[in-house]
Design a protein around this nucleic acid. Sequence first.
DNA 1: CTAATTACCTACCGATCGGTCGGTTAACCG
DNA 2: CGGTTAACCGACCGATCGGTAGGTAATTAG
Lengths: 212, 212
Amino acid sequence: METSMLDPEEKSKADSRERIIHTTTGLFLEKGFAGTSMSTIAKACDMTKASLYYHFSGKEDLFIACVTHGYATALNALTVIVADTSLTAEQKLRAAITALYETTITSPVGRMSPLIAEVSRAFPKVALSFHTEYIEPQREALWQIVEDGVAKGVFAPVDQNQFFHIAFGPIVTLSLSREMFATFDDLDTYFPVDALRVGHTDVLLGMLRPGT
Amino acid sequence: METSMLDPEEKSKADSRERIIHTTTGLFLEKGFAGTSMSTIAKACDMTKASLYYHFSGKEDLFIACVTHGYATALNALTVIVADTSLTAEQKLRAAITALYETTITSPVGRMSPLIAEVSRAFPKVALSFHTEYIEPQREALWQIVEDGVAKGVFAPVDQNQFFHIAFGPIVTLSLSREMFATFDDLDTYFPVDALRVGHTDVLLGMLRPGT
DNA sequence: CTAATTACCTACCGATCGGTCGGTTAACCG
DNA sequence: CGGTTAACCGACCGATCGGTAGGTAATTAG
């Protein structure tokens, strides 16, 4: 019933699924959802289209799998920071913002935001899943840090939506812009991620600075 | 060579073009670029597909026309504010931010940003046009206000990219989120535009506050 | 009047789309 | 060994895609 040993040339279903997801994610990021056909995906996976449909029930299913795949790892970085008792509130916030820049701009999940926007009209359940399983946990983790700081008196209380607006807004837009203008040759001088992140963090800490 | 009178049932080429652009913009915003076929557009315009190709050379051409159409009017609001000598620097900034929220979230051009991201891989010239003819003028107008304030001593000097990052980021993300989660029934309580705008403006003025 | 042009039409094209059907191959099981 | 099943494939489907060839009614020009 189960494979008794791990041969190097694995053919297990789970393995194929993962390989397909990985390859397809790259294609979607490169060409968009509508711009990537099932035939193209199959070819890139060294498979037939029919085999693809053996593993996934359709293009939407495959897309959801690609999006969902990175949720856990991307969120894990945040929860680790929240749980780290050796850090001060400010250190936690700095680390969290850095992690958000990292996941949103570098990791496939974050970079997929524009794609999710693209398909959200046709498949509203994708947008819903993205929101409840990715956006909302991110907000909760960040808010945990803020509330802890407020409880300790090192942060001034702020409005939740306001803070999220200023915290996530620049990051998401930066990611979107970099995807949108990916063909620009001076991308990194026009959108210098690290410098923008540092200044952005200062602004957020300014919002939370107690006194007056 | 020219129509001598303006009959109510106009059949001029320019008129048809404008009507097509208007109708098509709505369809693109509703269904996305790939999700809107030329046949659908033709039907919505009470035309045949062939007639569409009489006015536009192709789907890309039509899309560019839709995007470009609102550039001038959207930018005009900003330039009027910049040129208004009766306003203080702070008043100008407040008015400019309000105008940016208005155009980015309400007007078709602004709402088209996710669409431009969608097609930017296939048609890089669209992204380029969007950048040089829309984004860049917006940045220049906003920067003009900041520089005026700095020259008058009412604003503290700030880094340009940093300021743009915090200024445009939340607005674009808000627009994107509202398009993405348009099906949510509690959209306005989750993304309360006016409240977020006010708080955002305060943050920006905080960045520019002189002293210390 | 005729000729030309404008704005639109019907009918069609090849290509490609997402998806399916009926196998085939190879490993595993009793 | 035969039987079952998991993993995969070649060939094909109807639908739809963006785009086009060629014609036509109405207006305008000379």
